[in-house]
Nucleic acid binder design. Sequence first.
DNA 1: AATGAATGAGGATTCATTCAT
DNA 2: GATGAATGAATCCTCATTCAT
Lengths: 193, 193, 193, 193
Amino acid sequence: MPKLGMEPIRREALVQATIAEIGDAGSLDVTVSRIARRAGVSAALAHHYFGGKEQIFLAAMRHILAQYGAGVRLALAGARTPRARLDAVIAAGFSPENFDEATIGAWLNFYVQARVVPEAGRLLRVYQRRLRSNLVHDLRPLVGDAAPDVAETLAALIDGIYIRAALGEGLPDGAAATARVARVLDRLLETGE
Amino acid sequence: MPKLGMEPIRREALVQATIAEIGDAGSLDVTVSRIARRAGVSAALAHHYFGGKEQIFLAAMRHILAQYGAGVRLALAGARTPRARLDAVIAAGFSPENFDEATIGAWLNFYVQARVVPEAGRLLRVYQRRLRSNLVHDLRPLVGDAAPDVAETLAALIDGIYIRAALGEGLPDGAAATARVARVLDRLLETGE
Amino acid sequence: MPKLGMEPIRREALVQATIAEIGDAGSLDVTVSRIARRAGVSAALAHHYFGGKEQIFLAAMRHILAQYGAGVRLALAGARTPRARLDAVIAAGFSPENFDEATIGAWLNFYVQARVVPEAGRLLRVYQRRLRSNLVHDLRPLVGDAAPDVAETLAALIDGIYIRAALGEGLPDGAAATARVARVLDRLLETGE
Amino acid sequence: MPKLGMEPIRREALVQATIAEIGDAGSLDVTVSRIARRAGVSAALAHHYFGGKEQIFLAAMRHILAQYGAGVRLALAGARTPRARLDAVIAAGFSPENFDEATIGAWLNFYVQARVVPEAGRLLRVYQRRLRSNLVHDLRPLVGDAAPDVAETLAALIDGIYIRAALGEGLPDGAAATARVARVLDRLLETGE
DNA sequence: AATGAATGAGGATTCATTCAT
DNA sequence: GATGAATGAATCCTCATTCAT
């Protein structure tokens, strides 16, 4: 039965199962066994591929961050003006594939993981740095030296909306979330904050 | 050694130990034993008083929320104008006793807990409702019907700053956090968004 | 509040609570705390009076056996012929105060206890010896040397009916139980087995 | 060391160890650890295969009842007349493999378990129903409508002898037990009770 | 490549029992 | 006499992880 080239397929399945399982559980209290069963493989295989539970979680984080990154890149490709690019970056975070139940739940838990596992912290910081750098880059032409500060505000607002979505309160849909952030951006741009 | 009336003292000690332990660990992966040892009692006593680990966590949440609530009430007592009251509410969340390492860490984890334990979700929602209602009440005279929307934006921003503080990134000090939110509020008020 | 002469009252209450608790639980898996609470005293007091859990169980056994013994003695007092005395002994075991749910349940569990705690075994054996001796004494005039054997059969039958009552199967009422044993006795007497 | 197809072997070993352990202890107060050690495996494996302590006990009950049932079936296979079948049923219960120390001890404790765990009660009731039905079936030709009543008496007598054997008093050997029941059956048949 | 078998380590929880008041 | 306070010891159970096949 073991086929050639199964590894990438299995890894992908395990990563997806991990995210789904975390989403279902609402926490990182998920067992490797459950993840493996959901992916249709044995727990031993999960270990074989990833080396350990922590690595499985990290792979899931990487997957989510990569997916987010790809979304941003895609959105940026079609944007011409700084403002259009800003809107693109903001919208990307709330696009359907990043803003669904399971992903949001996983995201919240990765914040926790980032406080515990150094490598997880590194991953999350890379994402944040990239987000901020994207924002700053396009804010600079609009607000000048206030860019870093405005960027931080926007980033915090985005994270806050995410976190509130994780609680089931607040907006369940990405369009409204995007609109909210965009509106704040409007105000901050009006006077150059 | 056994004195009378020890119960409230032990409970308080255990709650403090729980928050500190969660803060240290960065996650809810703390054992009752460690909490108890930190509080200077046996694990059995912790169970005796609270009934179980989950209840201990809930007690810690209640403590943190109550402390926050008291801070808000205190701050509101000295504020006269709507804007002053808004600033008071915002500042209360970032006051030193609410915005220290351990409390922030515990807070983040309570967000997770809220997704898993219904009672925890209820507690957090009560806090959010109260915060929103405070904000809406004082925004109404300033922005009219936009009040709920502005309130939601402010609440999300506050939560976002909290979460980022939990990651060790962003502002470590409450004054700056307060200032950031206040500045956004300024902009939002200017045009009555 | 402590009154003089409370001890016998408390002991009695604790013994009754023990039997009731065992009856409710269906097993000896009852805690001293529960027993004490049911008796309206603290667990510490139960220990103070009895010395330990095992002693509490033994006291309950003694109580049940004593109650049974008293019933037998009372029944024998009014019986004149050997057969009447046999019937009296049989009926005593199935009288309402010995054949209620809780007592039957406790009884079954004391059989278990008898295999574990030597003193419990001794108590049960004393009861059995007395029952057998009563039966033999009155069977002798009726069946001669077969008396010990017939007695053993009757005793086993009585125990069997008890045990089956404990399971909720078979007869729930003492009159029928008595009749059953009496009928068997009739047959055994007919030919002097 | 891990071979394939170990599961049934381990299960069997654990069940045997459970019966032996209960027999030794004289009660259900045996730990999973001790059972597992006796079976030569870890406690974790016992849980892995059975799911929990209660299930282990149930498996042991099922084993004992199945063994008893097999013995009855075997004995019935060689019996031609109703009376021979009755004797076979009676003797089966007291055959060496059903009437040894450990099994008797376990049996008594299963009576207790039956009062506490519904599934255990169901198992025991199935056995009792089957025994009664066997007896009634073969008593009918001999005593007509009195069959159910005589069957109940015999069943109670059998249980009673069992229980007394559990106490270490009375007959330690099955032959005598069988003879005792057979003799009572003789008497009950003489007049058709 | 993949898995069933197996376990060590650890944690929540329960409870009888002790003791100072 | 009576109890709240407190704990050590035990036990069930879970789970990540390893290993031979």
